[in-house]
Design a protein around this nucleic acid. Structure first.
Lengths: 221, 221
DNA sequence: AGCCCGCCTTAACGCAACCTTAAAGGAGGC
DNA sequence: GCCTCCTTTAAGGTTGCGTTAAGGCGGGCT
């Protein structure tokens, strides 16, 4: 976890740096607003702790420019003045959180953790991957390399069942029983039709047929 | 965006409810901790605003149990006492943010916005941006390139929910549940009508329909 | 070889899901 | 209190998915 601390009060920085490092963060430290402005482009920080009262360039202005330039890392603001207006300005400028001086060091730690947890926790895309095919469950579509392949409801359900059982022989009856809860019709070729449609979209080789036994999802190996 | 406000001070709730609703949130209100504990299981709230001093069951305890039961929605804490220890306890218990009474209503709004964006992985920009569309939460209007597109309340609410869940398939039921609070009808085509309106204003391609499954916000890719 | 059975392919149909439009119902402003 | 604009309801039209059905193909068994 890579942090950037932008703080010109040496005493405070001296106090925070070891604390953060003790807790497993790699922390870079800058004391000047202008330095911070460019530095954030050079490295990919997971979070920035930004003091508002800075020499060189005011913290609020730094933050505003970062956002304007498309930098989107989480920013936690430190402010000496406990005025409502300033906190609002900070949030408006694009801060994720703020802390009012003086604060207890442990509180900073907790807020850092909270912000990081939030900003990373939601990045988990639910994607199922097997044999060279990806399935985006949130989007209900498949991906081959970089190409998105839109699926209908039945196709999606069938492909998902295949991908949850990769390399396993699935009989026609098992498939139809899984796709339709209730008893399945015997004299119907629904499964075959949908297999056919999947093969058309994904390429013929992704699903092998074992005559008399069922189908096997092999992907593109 | 569906919120739950848990606050026993009637005067404060009376002040906050219209404010939040004016800004496009569907808000349910409870005054008792025990009610809140179960209610959070019944509905899928996008955020909870939780007062700590509650009758029935203390707010901190409510939060702790929610987390223990696997509920992970963002929670914003309101606390009357400005003690460091309580804020730390709140964050430890799994809160995402806190606000100390008394606070300025506008500050609550900004924090709500910040937490919601953070929990959906977007950077805390002034404008919400996804897939070539920008959304100005203050003006409740959208921007395509340089053109401002005025939105009505319902359109804004819907578009915001789409933009906070980009690339994710949203069912009609999910949409209506997140756009309307407690007592709302289910067998109606409101969602379809508003989808239609949004498509007219933003262009037909911004929202795909996946028949039988839901809608997908794709912007202008 | 020839036949049968299992699988493939294609096209067509029906129905539910969805779209569109208009008009009624409400809320807020002047 | 009236006017306006937004939201919701309602009704009819349209579309596309899921299913069925029919014809073709080929492998394996007798």
């Amino acid at each position: 976890m890579r942090l950037l601390l932008v703080e010109d009060t040496v005493a405070l920085a001296d106090q925070l740096l070891p604390l953060l490092r003790d807790h497993g963060y790699a922390v870079d430290w800058l004391a000047d607003g202008r330095d911070a402005l460019v530095r954030a482009h050079d490295d990919d920080f997971d979070l920035v702790i930004l003091d508002l009262g800075l020499p060189g360039l005011d913290g609020l202005e730094v933050l505003r420019r970062w956002r304007q330039q498309g930098l989107s890392m989480p920013v936690l603001i430190l402010t000496a003045r406990d005025s409502w207006a300033e906190r609002v300005d900070g949030l408006r400028a694009g801060a994720d959180d703020y802390l009012t001086k003086p604060f207890h060091p442990e509180e900073l730690l907790l807020r850092v953790q909270a912000v990081l947890r939030r900003s990373h926790g939601s990045a988990n895309q639910r994607r199922l991957r097997a044999c060279g095919v990806e399935l985006d469950e949130e989007r209900q579509s498949a991906w081959l390399d970089q190409d998105e392949i839109e699926l209908t409801g039945a196709e999606f359900r069938m492909l998902r069942y295949f991908m949850l059982n990769p390399g396993r022989l699935l009989s026609k009856i098992a498939l139809s029983e899984h796709l339709y809860d209730g008893e399945s019709e015997r004299d119907s070729n629904v499964v075959e039709v949908h297999i056919n449609r999947l093969r058309r979209k994904l390429g013929g080789e992704v699903i092998q047929t074992r005559r008399g036994q069922g189908y096997l999802f092999t992907g593109r190996d």
